[in-house]
Each structure stands twice: as C-alpha cells, then as structure tokens.
Design a protein around this nucleic acid. Structure first.
Length: 882
RNA sequence: GGGCGGUUAGCUCAGACUGGUAGAGCAUCUCGUUUACACCGAGAGGGCCGGCGGUUCGAAUCCGUCACCGCCCACCA
C-alpha cells in the first residue's frame, strides 16, 4: 500500500539507478525506429548545476522522453566542454593556494595537473544531471578534448587552413593583460565607467606657436601617436592638413592627415591616432600608411618604445605620469569628467587592451554565407522565430574570428615553424616534418606553435565530432542532422552560429532542423541570479526540498516563449502539491482495488462516466501532442495538470465513489478497470515532466508489470471521444457547479448541504443519468430545495428555485444595506450588458456582416442576461420587503 | 545610434499567431475534515489587459504611435 504522503527523495535515486542499469537511456540504432536526436550543449567541465542548466536540461529531457515514448530511437548525446580559460584558472588557483605557479611547473606538467583534476572533479555536473532525472545516453558521453574529438579538431583546422579559411595575421586583438591571452570580441564585456577627457595641445611644426588640440580618455596612448586626423571638410583645420605636429614628451614629428573618420562634432574635431592601441585608429593608420607603434607590453605596462622615464609603468601609473608631464609642459588644455564604455574581460574582470599581435583567424565571413542561407530558406528554423533576426544581424556583420589563445589548456594549434619561420600546418608532427622536408630538401628542426584554440572552435564541431567524424560511422549517417538544439539566447553567437558554419561546411548539411531558444531564469524579482547578489536558487536545494519532479514541472510550466522566467519558490511548492495529489489519487485507486487490467479496451466501456473519462484522456493526450510538437512546454504541462487535478480527481473519482462502493458488480468491475487505465494514461502523459513519481506509481499500481514506464508506448487514441457521454457529463458538471455557485451567492452557510449536493450527484451517476430532470430533482430534494421550473437545453443551465427557502436565512446573516448596494451594482452591470447587446443586435452592420452563429450566440447571451436581471431584480425586491 | 522583448488580478505568469462578455498558480477572505489527499475540498473578492490613435459590426488580441522597464549589438577622440 502506498504511503499517505509522497516522499520524493526515497524513490528518485532508486529509479534513476534502475533506468541506468537497464540501459533505458540508450540509443538503439539497431531498432530500426526513426531517430530523434538532441545534442546536449556540453556544460563546462568545471561547472556545477545552476537553475539555467536545470531549465535547459529539463526541457531537453522532456523532449527526449516524449519522443522515446512516441517510438523514436532517441539519442541524447551528452558530454562536457574542456572550457579552456575557465578550467585553467580553476587549477591555477588551486596550485597558487599551494604556493606554486604554473610557470614553475612548466607546460607539460601543468596540463597533466589539469587532466588529473578533470579525472577527480570533472564529473560533478554529470552526477547533478542524474539528480535532475536527465536521460542522455551516458555510454556515448564525450569530452571536447578526448582523442576522437581532438583528431576532428586537428583535421578541421588543417582543412580550413588549406582552403585558405584559416590564416595567420598580425592584427589588433582584444588582449587580456591578466590572463595573457587574446580573447574574442564576444568575450569582451562593455561596462560604463566614469572617467575623464583630457584635452592636449600639440604644437604645429613651423606654425609659430600654433597648436592643434586633441582630446583623449587614454592619455598614456599618446606616446604611441603617429598622426593626427581631421575631417577633410572641417574649415577649422583645413589649412593644417599635410603639416606636421611635434608630439610632446616624445618629440616625434607626425603628420596631420585628412580622414572622414574624424567627426567635427565630437571632441575638438581633431583626433590623435594611435594605430597600435585602438581598433579605429588602426584602420585610419593603415589608410594613411603611418607606423603602428606598440607602447605596451603583455602586462599592459609601458614598454621600451616610450621615453625612458615612463618605461615599466603600468598603464594607469603611466596615465598619471603623462598627464603630469603634459601639464608641466603646458600642453594640458582642459580636463572634463566623462562617462564612457570600457572593455572588460568576462573571465578576468580586467580592462582589455587592443594589442597588436600575431594570431590565427578564421574567415568567418565566407563560412557564414551558407549558414545565413540555411536559415533564410528554412532548412533550420528558430523557435521563437524572432531570434532569426538576432542571428542574421550578427552573421551578416561577422568579423574574422580570432581562434588562438595564449594559454596551455586546450587543443594546441597543429602548426609547426621551420628555422626561417615558414609554417607547416599538418595533423601530426610526422606529416609536418615530411612537408618541411619537401620544402627545404633536408630534415630540419621544427617548433610547434604554442597557442591553443578557442574552446568554441571544438564545441562548434560537437554535432558531428561526437558521432565519430571524420570517420564515416553509422551513427553519423543515422543521427546527423539532429532534430533540435535547445539552448539559451546567450550562446547564439558563441556556439549556435559556429555549429551552423562548421556543420554546413564539413557535413554539407545543417546540424539541426530546429533551434529552440528558451528564456533565462531570473529570480522572483526579475534580477539575474548571481553569487554577489545572493539571490541564487540552487536547483539541488530545491530538489531536496520539493522533489525533482516538482522542480521539473515548474520549469516546464514556466517555459513560455518570449519572456524571461522569474522563478518563485511558491510555484515549485504548488507543483509539489500536485505530485502529492497524484500520489493520493493513486492511493485511492489502490484502496478501491482499481488495478490495471491487461487488454483493457477503453472503447468497450459502457458506463457513462467511464465513456466520458476515456474521451477526456484522448482530448488531453491530443493537447499534449500538439503542444510538445511545437515546443509549447507550458501548454502541455497545463493540459495534464488540469486533467489530472480538475477532471480526474475532482470529478471522475467523485462520480466513481458510489459505483466503486455500490452493489452493481458489473459496473464496479468496469469502473475499477477504467480508473486504473485512466491513471495509467496520466502516468504516461506526465512521465516526460515528472519521471520519478510516475515510474514509481506505474510500478506500485501493478508490481507484476515487467516493463518500465520510461520505455512504455505513448498513448495514441484519437477516436475515443463519445460526444454523447461528453456532453452529458460536461452538463452534469456544469449543473453541479452552477448549483454550488447559486447556493454560495445566496450566502447559505451550511456546508453539510454542499456535501449532500455532491452525494446527490453521485446518486445520479449511479442511476446512470437517466434524464437531466431526474438529476435536478434529486439534487434539489437532497438539498431541500423546491424546484418550480427546470429547463435544461444543451449548453446552458437554467433553473428557478423556490427562493423562499433560500432567502430566509440570507436575511439573518448579512448586512442588508451592503447586500442591497451589491445587488444594485450587479443590476446596473447586468442592465449595461443587456443594453450593450441590444445595441449590438440592432446594429445592421453586425447583423449583415457577422457570421450567423456569432449573432445567434450573442442573442443567447442576451437571453441569459435577461434571466439574470430578473433574478437580481427579484432578490432586490425581496430585500426591500425585508 | 540600431535591434529585440516586456507592460494583463496584490505577486508570478498564461491567453495574442487564428478578433466575439478576461484565465491559472500563489496570496487574501468565508465555509468545510465519518469515509484518497489540509501538500485537501467547496466558494468569494480582486482586472477601463501601459497611454493615444487607426482598421472592424466588434480589439487584451491586428496596424500605427508614444511612454516606461529589461536585454542584445555598435559607437563614444
């Protein structure tokens, strides 16, 4: 017998282990079933489960479990990402705690340390995923740096290089002076900072004291200025174009050039140009053929290209020193407060420097073309669709992608340099040696490029590298392209775009048919969850408190499209209650000996309530199907919730009580079987959302059953709705509800009467609903109501009860003045409605143009209001008399 | 500067694509535990659906516009 209360913790671990041991999550290529594939976005190996993970993995698991039950060969490909910088930082911090730096250790030993760390601590998030009930094919788990994936990375790099789509170039990149590596544009975060704007005067050569004033937020960079730009049409400066200024402090003679980049409206209209330390200046410098002088080193300290007094100063000390010196020399014209955006590294949190270095780049523009076309033509669809705009916007303006990183943890660039600097890009050192031999004619000593690749380079290959590429594996053949990618919008650029480019280029086909973009999880107040704000809701805590199923159901129920999810704990609590409700419904079935009957035919039932509930199951299953096929998780969750609680528990089981406890053996047997069957169907429909409790109840209801719910077949019953039973039961429900409402409205207190009403409904059910009239009369008799008239057309309930018996207690219990005011207000409202409908029904345009059924509907509604008016008016009159 | 999203009950959100008297959960209030469940049951109150225009017989819903909130991208000498 089931316990009175559902205790999630006890069953979650049990079932997960049973599933895993039974291989229930395995893809079954041998099954011959059509595949359904989701590539799990690999979480960082350093990661631990946060609410965002909980959301994305719950939604993926709902889809996977659903389609698995729908008879597909479901593959949910799991794995983790080596997360270059993040992981290196974690291990580096650990070492530093022991007083060791990675440089002391050396590269090889440090990388070994990271592997060691990975083997020990890298499995955290997978175990947390298990607690979430996720059902990926763990046997196929991959890591972005395992042998197979690393081979794919090397091959891709070499091929792209040989196709001219990867190249080495000296360009300005975003340099992180703390981590000592280049990072991509996407890893740079712009923050608003209060700073200053300094105005400097540069003396014009041979100008007899004439100066040109420039403004800057970064005075220290002036040491690297190589020209001053003014707008060609700016009359203030036109006469100076072609002349030179002498750069103060440095003494360098630099030209004044005309360039449209200079905006006469901004600053002084004259711009100092530092090509080596500003992306725009770099372009200007290139146009005018001036030198790019790098004045900073890797730590963002002033280097040997600056006057001796400034060498070695860090950029902020350098700034102060330059300003002081300029002031001393009389070149500081003005200082203003200024708010501007400053680039910060999203990992290191320090200010990023545009810095001139040699890096590897991917020609993203070329690769983006087919990726744009694939979405334009609908071969890949975004859901919700508006994310396509974001995708297009970025892809159409895509910049070269800097893929090299000056860190140690990652895929080392497969490039070797000969003694004269010639580069040989090959998959292995042997091949590089061979290429070098061909080139030089002799064997030479090669040195491997020390850079590693951006983490996103390898994750961009995920949809096919995990399936065995470059080998032509059966898996690759079978599961690519995948069905859907489920992810948050924050990595559309980082990851989605790169997978599209790589997939199309190397597989010739899109990596996924659909891209479902879900919202971000925020806290109750709409704030981003963060450690510093202390507003994190930890999914594991929540699971501990309310159970995994409650959390999963909450996340699915909140996953509506197009809005961030504000997670309120009260929602989770509510769905925990739902789980308990289901548990108790099952307990009721058990108590009443409602056991699943093998071979039960839902179409063969004859009791009206049973024909009714069977039809309701079919309707619900249909709703769930439609919703899940279009990624409307909230609608699917709501449909099952409503059916389970609002129909099955609230009505069907209540109607069933008199039958289950009555004397008609045939009816009882059928109702037992039907109740058990209906519960079974609920368990199916709910399983993708609440896998644990459903599996437990599936087992508890029929312990002899050998199969597991996770592998059970999804309910498919389109033709089970019996319109007659449906209408009639809906009608009964409405009658009872109406009577309850009428009673409440009349303010009749005794709850005993309501109980009697419900019992009355049960009586009628047992009597198999011979006529509507019988129902009303029975209910009225049980509730001591005198019925003067009963009229019950389909679709409406109209009854006039003898007010005398009802109104009498009313006067005793309520404030007459207050009630009178309420009724007047009510009357006014009703009259307003009637007037509105009268006007409408006399509107020729409406009568002529609106569809006839709408007109009819409005007429009926008017009649209802008229009846309501009579009721209210009568009550008011009686109140006056009292 | 460009783009996207949001604005509906006290709170958190559905509904909008496909126009026809506004929905859920939580919270509040009233009543109710002899018989699955108080993590329960029966009810109630609470909304000019952000403002203004337009289309339409009819707009929370479609179109335009404004306001406020949030996010993304770009730029800021």
């Amino acid at each position: 017998m089931l316990d009175k209360t559902y205790r999630p913790a006890e069953i979650e671990a049990k079932h997960y282990e049973l599933w895993e041991r039974a291989g229930a999550f395995r893809a079954r290529p041998e099954s011959g079933r059509p595949p359904y594939t989701i590539m799990m976005p690999p979480p960082n190996v350093t990661g631990s489960l946060h609410m965002g993970h909980a959301l994305t993995f719950t939604l993926q698991d709902v889809l996977i479990r659903y389609w698995r039950m729908r008879g597909r060969d479901a593959l949910w490909q799991p794995g983790t990402d080596h997360a270059g910088i993040a992981t290196q930082m974690v291990v580096e911090r650990q070492l530093e705690a022991q007083g060791v730096t990675r440089h002391q250790l050396g590269r090889a030993a440090f990388v070994d340390k990271i592997w060691e760390w990975k083997h020990q601590s890298g499995g955290t998030i997978q175990n947390q995923l298990r607690r979430l009930g996720a059902s990926p094919d763990w046997a196929r788990e991959r890591f972005t740096m395992d042998d197979g994936l690393s081979r794919a990375v090397r091959k891709i790099f070499v091929e792209l290089y040989k196709q001219g789509l990867i190249y080495r170039d000296k360009r300005l990149v975003n340099w992180d002076p703390k981590l000592h590596t280049a990072i991509s544009d996407l890893e740079v975060e712009q923050r608003e900072v209060k700073g200053h704007m300094w105005h400097f005067t540069y003396p014009v050569e041979g100008g007899a004291g004439a100066v040109i004033t420039v403004a800057t937020t970064r005075p220290e960079t002036m040491l690297g200025d190589t020209c001053v730009a003014v707008h060609p049409d700016d009359d203030r400066y036109r006469h100076l174009i072609g002349k030179h200024v002498v750069l103060p402090i440095v003494g360098r003679r630099i030209p004044i050039v005309a360039d449209e980049y200079s905006d006469p409206e901004k600053g002084t209209g004259a711009v100092k140009i530092t090509p080596a330390h500003d992306f725009n200046d770099f372009e200007v410098g290139k146009r005018h053929g001036v030198e790019a002088i790098n004045v900073l080193d890797a730590n963002a300290c002033l280097n040997d290209s600056v006057p001796e007094a400034f060498r070695g100063l860090d950029r902020y000390e350098g700034r102060k020193a330059v300003v002081a010196e300029m002031e001393r020399l009389g070149h500081l014209a003005k200082v203003e407060d200024h708010v501007h955006m400053v680039p910060y590294g999203d990992r290191s949190g320090v200010v990023i420097e545009p810095w001139l270095t040699d890096q590897w780049f991917v020609d993203a523009k070329t690769l983006a073309k087919p990726a744009i076309e694939a979405v334009e033509s609908g071969r890949t669809r975004f859901v919700p669709k508006h994310w396509e705009n974001t995708y297009f916007e970025w892809m159409r303006n895509i910049q070269p992608w800097c893929i090299s990183r000056q860190i140690w943890w990652g895929h080392q660039v497969p490039a070797w340099y000969g003694p004269d600097g010639t580069v040989f890009v090959e998959e292995t050192e042997e091949e590089a040696q061979k290429a070098a031999h061909d080139h030089y004619g002799v064997n030479v000593r090669l040195e491997r490029d020390s850079d590693v690749l951006d983490t996103w380079f390898s994750s961009g290959l995920w949809p096919f590298s995990t399936l065995g590429w470059p080998d032509e594996t059966p898996e690759l053949q079978r599961y690519y392209p995948t069905d859907v990618l489920v992810t948050g919008f924050d990595i559309i650029f980082f990851w989605v775009a790169r997978m599209m480019m790589m997939g199309l280029h190397f597989m010739g086909e899109v990596p996924f048919r659909d891209i479902y973009i879900h919202a971000l999880v925020r806290d109750e107040k709409g704030q981003k969850m963060s450690k510093s704000k202390g507003n994190i809701i930890d999914p594991l805590d929540t699971i501990g408190k309310y159970g995994c199923d409650a959390l999963r159901f909450t996340l699915a129920a909140l996953a509506a499209q197009g809005r961030d999810i504000k997670l309120a704990e009260s929602r989770v609590e509510g769905y925990r209650n739902f789980a308990t409700k289901l548990w108790n419904a099952a307990r009721f079935c058990q108590i009443n000996d409602c056991r699943p009957v093998p071979g039960f035919d839902p179409e063969g039932v004859s009791e009206k309530v049973n024909r009714w509930i069977v039809g309701k199951v079919a309707e619900t299953a249909e709703k769930v199907d439609v919703a899940l096929e279009s990624y409307r998780f909230n609608e699917a969750a709501q449909a099952v919730y409503q059916f389970t609680w609002g129909t099955f528990c609230d009505w069907y089981l209540e109607f069933g009580k008199p039958i289950l406890q009555g004397g008609d053996d045939t009816a009882r047997a059928e109702t037992r079987a039907a109740a058990a069957w209906t519960l079974d169907q609920i368990l199916h429909l709910l399983h993708p959302f609440m896998p644990f409790i459903t599996e437990e109840l599936w087992e508890a209801m029929a312990p002899e059953r050998a199969d597991r719910l996770i592998n059970a077949e999804w309910p498919a019953h389109g033709a089970l709705v019996d319109p007659e039973a449906n209408d009639e039961m809906d009608w009964v429900v409405r009658v009872i509800t109406t009577i309850r409402a009428v009673r409440a409205e009349m303010n009749v207190p005794p709850a005993a009467k309501l109980t009697a009403l419900l019992r009355g409904a049960n009586e009628i059910t047992r009597a198999r609903l011979y006529t509507h009239r019988d129902l009303i009369m029975t209910l009225a008799r049980l509730d001591n109501l005198e019925i003067s008239e009963v009229e019950a057309p389909r679709g409406a309930v109209q009854m006039v009860v003898d007010e005398a018996t009802v109104v009498l207690p009313l006067a005793e219990h309520i404030d007459i003045a207050q009630e009178r005011a309420r009724l007047r207000k009510e009357l006014a409202k009703v009259e307003g409605e009637i007037a509105r409908l009268d006007k409408k029904l006399s509107n020729e345009g409406f009568l002529a143009k609106a569809p006839p059924e709408v007109v009819e509907d409005q007429r009926e509604k008017r009649e209802e209001w008229v009846l309501a008016r009579a009721k209210v008016a009568e009550a008011l009159e009686r109140l006056q008399a009292a």
